[in-house]
Amino acid sequence: MSTSFLHSFQSEWLKTRRSLAAWLVIIGGFFLPFIMLVGRTVYHEKTSAESTSPLFWENLAGQCWQFMALFLLPMGVILATSLITQIEFRNNAWKQVHTTPQHFYTLFWSKLMVIMVMVVQFFILFNIGIYLAGAVPALLLGTVDYPSQPFPFMYMLKTSGRFMLDILPVVGLQYLISLQFKNFFVPLGVGIAMLMLSLVMVEWKYGYIVPYTYSPYNFFELRGSAMSGSKDVNIHWLALSYFAFFTVLSFVLYISKKEKG
């Protein structure tokens, strides 16, 4: 990694400090696990019985991922990607950014890298949240035992890795649109429309052509009830391909912009 990229990344990362996107990652990462934690604490009799299950963590993760995969993860990524990219438009900063001695490609990739790191950060927080949702009731309530099953790190890593792959097309397209349009509502509107479309198309046998469907498809696969739209295709490769396509297109459009601030 060249030093210019590293400096550019540090500069971009600093811009996210106290930003709405940064808060979104933290709140979004802990939101569902917190609800699960509250639920498990309130209904502690049921919780106590679940703690002995040999698939305790898989079941808990499955419950958390259910809402996350279908709506919150794509929505969070739509918002975070758009918010981070729009920091420059919102602060009238493109003109200043583009008069710093940084190559356009360095700027493009460092900004994208910041988004990717934030997505990874979100997954880490979400997994920590799942762990806390499982472990904390035992610490708070004397009547609930600590889960007997050891925390399945590899399973959690693999699951998160797949969702990470499947959400990449959303990052790619949102990044592309956010770089092109000054108005925040354009990327947000397109993102919400695509998300709604994906929820409608997910049951269609060719639903895999919609790049926002892979996260729901992955969830159904995880649950063991793969949808017809994802049965005959490798959605992870498709997700990667869409991401590569959107990113290259986004880069070409960004580089060839006539007005840079």
């Binding site: 600093l14 811009k15 400090r17 930003s19 900063a93 003109k95 200043q96 008069t99 710093t100 601030g261």
Partner: peptide, 30 residues
């Protein structure tokens, strides 16, 4: 550009950052 300082039209200010943090953004870039 590494030897040019510029201020075009209205100033660029990241509203959610302090003055020092704003300049740190540019210190890293330059």
């Amino acid at each position: 550009l590494s030897n040019i300082g510029s201020l075009i039209e209205s100033p660029t200010v990241y509203g959610h950052l302090t003055a020092t943090e704003n300049l740190t953004v540019w210190q890293k870039a330059y």
